[in-house]
Design a protein around this nucleic acid. Sequence first.
DNA 1: CCGAATTGTTTTAAGCCTAAAATGTTTTCA
DNA 2: TGAAAACATTTTAGGCTTAAAACAATTCGG
Lengths: 172, 172
Amino acid sequence: MPAESDCTEMLDSETKAVETPEDHADELRLWLRLLTCTTLIEGEVRGRLRQRFDVTLPRFDLMAQLDKAPDGMTLSDVSKRMMVSNGNVTGLVERLVESGHLDRRTSETDRRVQVIRLTKLGRAEFRKMAAEHETWIADLFADLSPKDVRELMRLLAKTKSSAQKSAARRRA
Amino acid sequence: MPAESDCTEMLDSETKAVETPEDHADELRLWLRLLTCTTLIEGEVRGRLRQRFDVTLPRFDLMAQLDKAPDGMTLSDVSKRMMVSNGNVTGLVERLVESGHLDRRTSETDRRVQVIRLTKLGRAEFRKMAAEHETWIADLFADLSPKDVRELMRLLAKTKSSAQKSAARRRA
DNA sequence: CCGAATTGTTTTAAGCCTAAAATGTTTTCA
DNA sequence: TGAAAACATTTTAGGCTTAAAACAATTCGG
């Protein structure tokens, strides 16, 4: 048992290499808690969307992206924004075009590109859903003070950037 | 435009009822950021598990639950712990039994119940994966100081309890 | 004790999701 | 210019996921 179990610098080993198997239990717990929160909230939102509007969460998310882009988006844009695979978007869009919520057309200037937009119907339905959705979220986070919210925002921003860097390191 | 846009108490309206459409943009942004972090990290872990061990994230998660329960768990327990549907667990277990990682038997005392355990192979493989997995998580959160980690843990605990209460309110 | 509610699991139908390969289009650059 | 690289999307194969219905076993209340 090491005398100083929480040290971050390894003064007693010659190199900084993997001598002592470091303890990362806290980070692991943090990750599990983060995952729990997200799963909990996501499940709740999914259920409410289905019950109240008979719509799936992925469809709602896609429409939310498009609502912010009146001039439309390409499938790639959507895929990056939603952080899902290209093929996934293809299928989602297919179903939303089918149901009349989306309009899809090939770009005039680049025939590889598909531009999608919300139809009038799609936009109207989304706005209705979004208004209620916002109150659900507010309720789900109701116990957090404005200060908590700010602090959580800050720490999650740091988390995001940390994870992005780690992902970039791996790809390198 | 209200003079005091960030007030939480509505001193100027007769009742506390839904007079002014309150602004919950901050909570919404918080939720999106939470979701982004989780999606980012989850995707990274999923990719590393596949590349390194040719295993899917749900399989890993299920094995993680069982590793903590040497005497096995029932499918319901697993379903609750993983926060996924029952039918989902049925399928996952089927595939993991098939590949020799899990052992499944009907309870002696209640013939409705299926008890599943890691096999020797399953436990050995999981331990190998878990060790590496922990270093990935540590790396993904590397930019967070110990204090950040503690603070995030605290705020996420608060978030979880808030969301659970909200979910309970809805079910009521 | 027996019917009704409850509990644990599986099945079903539909949709979501991914990685990888395939297809078609545009850009790059030698 | 024309082959090669890069890009946008679709297809494919397989697995994950859910909600709801169906099935089976146990428990509960009268």
